[in-house]
Nucleic acid binder design. Structure first.
Lengths: 192, 192
DNA sequence: CGAAAATTTGACATGACTCAACTGGAGTGG
DNA sequence: CCACTCCAGTTGAGTCATGTCAAATTTTCG
């Protein structure tokens, strides 16, 4: 199991034997349990995490104490506070485990080394970023243009696999509405 | 003027003479006038654009005909429908000129060629993407967590240079509110 | 089974929207 | 130089979606 971590993360890439050893050496497998906080706001963020299985989320807490989910991550997703990770800055996000998870931890420094040794990895991450970017763009547009009900329906359609892993209040915090509102939306949709 | 386009776009990079020639050959300078549509939804998006000067915006039109601005771009910004650009898909965004502009046009294919010939350019764009990504992340969080008034104030603080170039109704469409609401917010803030 | 957590429901408050009318400039042409 | 028009912005009245707070109900899990 452990000897194929590199192939899990970099699913589409072919490595030579020596490259494989190098990549493996950069990936650290960790396990976290439901409720664990992997990162708290205010810390530096030297790592990103590849989710082997389980479910994680990043969230933001306002001064007023409201909790907003930026992102969920299930199997084969990456998660981090990327703004802080990329800029070597301080996190504003928290990372929480929602379902017991196995993660592969990859440091910023390791990534720079991998970029140097294996240029295909820089391309790999550039393309990941591009996709991620696209999903953020869609998110912004739907936050702007859609009602809460439409956002909920879009979420269910787009991420049917995620819904199973999360509580309604996490989904509400992702949609930017209260649990009460989500409950009413669900009630209304159930009638139809 | 024209012979330093490459240095404008790739501000921090040092090119050899031959690299400079290559990069220049990939950049096409174009001029657009206020009101011009550079891209309409439903088209393929083979280009991204570097803004030398002037002001552009990308916007999205819903089925109901509402208009939402995703992004403004002034001097030294890039603009495109990146989701379509990266995936070679069909645009959902429109690109409009808000103030007469000079742009440098760069095709997807040219970028792939540049990545191959000059790896530093791949790194350059990866880092651009990372920054862009960070700004999108902030946008999502503020859309979720802030009232219209707070979003307006944050915009003014974050992009004081952009406000000068745009109409209030463009700003409203960026904030996801109506011009009437923006007007009332401005009125309220003016009193204080 | 029982306690804690999650969800639902009800009553009411509020921020933002809609529609319609009005104001104030910036051109434009007689 | 005035009258006209167009466009951007403002204002007002009424409506609607979502929030708040409190309580009831259901689900989860030790």
């Amino acid at each position: 199991m452990n000897d194929s971590n590199a192939r899990k993360v970099f699913r589409d890439l072919d490595f030579t034997a020596s490259e494989l050893v190098l990549v493996e050496s950069k990936l650290e497998e960790i396990r976290v349990r439901k409720g664990d906080l992997l990162l708290s706001a205010g810390q530096s963020v030297p790592f990103q995490y590849y989710v082997v299985d389980g479910c994680m989320r990043t969230f933001f807490i306002t001064d007023a104490g409201r909790d907003f989910t930026l992102q969920f991550a299930v199997s084969d997703w990456f998660i981090s506070d990327y703004t802080a990770f990329f800029t070597s800055g301080i996190s504003i996000l928290n990372i929480e485990c929602l379902q017991d998870a196995t993660l592969l931890k990859l440091s910023h420094q390791s990534m720079e080394e991998l970029y140097r040794e294996i240029p295909a990895i820089e391309t790999f991450f550039r393309i990941k970023m591009e996709r991620f970017f696209g999903s953020f763009q869609k998110r912004i547009l739907s936050d702007l243009a859609m009602s809460a009900k439409e956002k909920y329906q879009t979420f269910l359609k787009t991420y049917p696999d995620i819904e199973k892993h999360i509580k309604n209040y996490h989904l509400a915090s992702y949609l930017g509405i209260t649990t009460e509102s989500l409950s009413r939306i669900r009630h209304e949709l159930a009638r139809a």
